[in-house]
Design a protein around this nucleic acid. Structure first.
Lengths: 200, 200
DNA sequence: CGAAACGTTGACCGTTTTCAATTACAGTGG
DNA sequence: CCACTGTAATTGAAAACGGTCAACGTTTCG
């Protein structure tokens, strides 16, 4: 999970501000002039594209600390709607100011590349996990991927129900799978902490 | 699908070369010094991480025109193995030369950021699609996402069996789903081309 | 305190996987 | 030019799996 703060990466960007939105409120709309790059501070924001045939296609969902609309740096208009799914707070950095900041120093631009590159790695990992079809294997892959320390431990930052959604499972399926894995001796649960068994 | 050619993005990088690998051959190994960034020219390459408990975790899979190990620009060592799944040909760009190239001009660094940012967008879209649980909806989302032109058309670049794997489905499930969608009048198939129905 | 999430478990049902068999097709070498 | 071989495409039937619905306990927080 990428959790670099944009305002730390882009120090002192003039015009940065935080805004709050009610559930269902639009942060920007498809076709609007692209003016800012965002990071979710709290809540959840979905990016939704309007398709020619009238249907809607969700192209991204950003939870706490995740960024969206980075592409506004390189495009003149937004290509989708951004909508708060739940009451949300977002940090907005004006694209112009960010462009200026990046253009002023190759180190800044390289730091941004590094940030994006980490994100690419993260997303590829999640993608690989979602392609696993069986729930127990998928959950184990996710846990191994997130485990840190010795013994390998995973702290669920989010509620399990939200983890379930990230994993492409229903909450019920996740609970059951976790119980199953615990019974199989592959892990141990202590509240919202999970200890992975290290077997030789 | 991102298909920008790295050697077009990074013009005249000294030391760039193409190398061929047999199925199963390692392009680099976890712990090796990070010396290059890669793009698959033909074939398929998996990035596999060795976990403390002895198991293997696939953290990415790159098909034709996809890049991997961009992070080698920012890290001293590789954090996973890269293994050719099938006989593969890869383009390698030395990280040092790329770093020099990016540092020489903010335009270069910004172009690289744009490249990565497009990739982030692409990956988020794929992720969103994989979280859809029912096969017909998942396949429709994938098709709508890839459709171009008027009428909206999708050309399967890969074999359907490989598309199935990208979609997190078995080939059989994909075939059946496609026939089902065709019967429901949502699309038409002409060999490996799919026409989306545009209904008002 | 009470409402609203979150966590948990059971039973049933629908979908997808699995296994198997068959057809189509492209490339290879005789 | 044509069997020959391997991969892709397709369909069927049965089983396994995860989803859905429902009920209830628990925690969190205003």
């Amino acid at each position: 999970m990428i959790s670099i703060m944009l305002d730390r990466l882009f120090a002192d960007i003039p015009g940065a501000f935080v805004a709050d939105f009610e559930a269902g409120a639009a942060i920007f709309r498809q076709g609007d002039e692209a003016t800012a790059i965002y990071q979710v501070r709290a809540g959840m924001v979905s990016l939704v594209r309007h398709i020619r045939d009238g249907s809607l296609l969700t192209v991204a969902t950003a939870g706490a600390n995740e960024t969206f609309a980075e592409a506004s740096l390189f495009a003149s208009h937004y290509h989708c709607d951004a909508m708060a799914r739940v009451p949300s707070s977002v940090l907005a950095l004006p694209s112009n100011a960010v462009r200026t900041y990046l253009g002023a120093d190759t180190d800044h631009a390289l730091a941004f590349s590094e940030f994006l590159s980490a994100q690419v790695r993260d997303l590829r990992g999640r993608l690989e996990i979602l392609r696993i079809r069986r729930a127990p294997e998928r959950v184990m892959a996710w846990l191994r991927w997130r485990a840190r320390g010795d013994p390998p431990t995973v702290d669920a930052g989010d509620a399990w129900s939200r983890v379930a959604s990230e994993l492409g499972l229903t909450p019920e399926a996740l609970y059951r799978t976790l119980t199953g894995l615990e019974k199989a001796g592959l892990l141990q649960r202590n509240g919202r902490r999970i200890l992975m068994s290290v077997r030789e």
